[in-house]
Design a protein around this nucleic acid. Sequence first.
DNA 1: GCTTACGTTTACGTTAACGTAAAGATATGC
DNA 2: GCATATCTTTACGTTAACGTAAACGTAAGC
Lengths: 127, 127
Amino acid sequence: MNAITQFSIRDLADEFDVTSRTLRFYEEKGLLSPKREGQTRWYSGADRTRLRLILRGKRLGLSLEESAEIINLYDPAAGNKKQIQALLTRIQDKRAELLEKQRELAQVLDDLQLSEQRCLAALKEKT
Amino acid sequence: MNAITQFSIRDLADEFDVTSRTLRFYEEKGLLSPKREGQTRWYSGADRTRLRLILRGKRLGLSLEESAEIINLYDPAAGNKKQIQALLTRIQDKRAELLEKQRELAQVLDDLQLSEQRCLAALKEKT
DNA sequence: GCTTACGTTTACGTTAACGTAAAGATATGC
DNA sequence: GCATATCTTTACGTTAACGTAAACGTAAGC
């Protein structure tokens, strides 16, 4: 009954290869909200998950704000019908947006694959 | 024999919904190199293509530098075997990098789809 | 009790990718 | 021939996402 789901700022910084400054900055922006024990910050498992999602978003070229928005869409945030309906719409919009991104990324990959094949052909010629 | 493959700065700015400042900035960064007729810039079809690729890269979260790098990988840039081999390696590296990005993007889309389904289920309950 | 190793706050610095404003050349309409 | 529009250069301003440095608290090791 004593699962250690507390992380120090160094734990997370090391695990995700970011600086402590970054973690404090994310907190300042409302993306993380660690507990306080005196001065010291303690991050929960949920904080850790949010951090992972934020960094994944970064790798995908999303701004911190966009990542935060998407992460909040994951939440249940139960409410009345109207609220759920609104959430659903936002999710669908976001998904459409990211699907478009996926298409464009696939296009870039196709283009690169063509270049690769041309390279391979040119190499064969010079054998 | 008089195909109009010249574009003014306004042509391109309007077509791609960017400002002329942006086009001059890209030129400053070496991404575009329009001809000059006195003061005025004239962009070629190739410039236009490069611009499209740059903007696509932006939408994917690539920096201008990364986009430039990728675009240069598209070029034939014929050379000796060693040069082609080097180019090939860079192309393959870039492709691996973007494929990883594609995987992560698919994951985000999966997550969002789950949220969407949970929303739909919640709505059904409240009918 | 002093160093060493962490943590903290506060605050100014930095880079990318432009925005914006000033001041001037050039062509076009009327 | 004068206003209007569109181009130009030069240069300072702006935002996001942190980096970096100063100045300080606190707990551990010896």
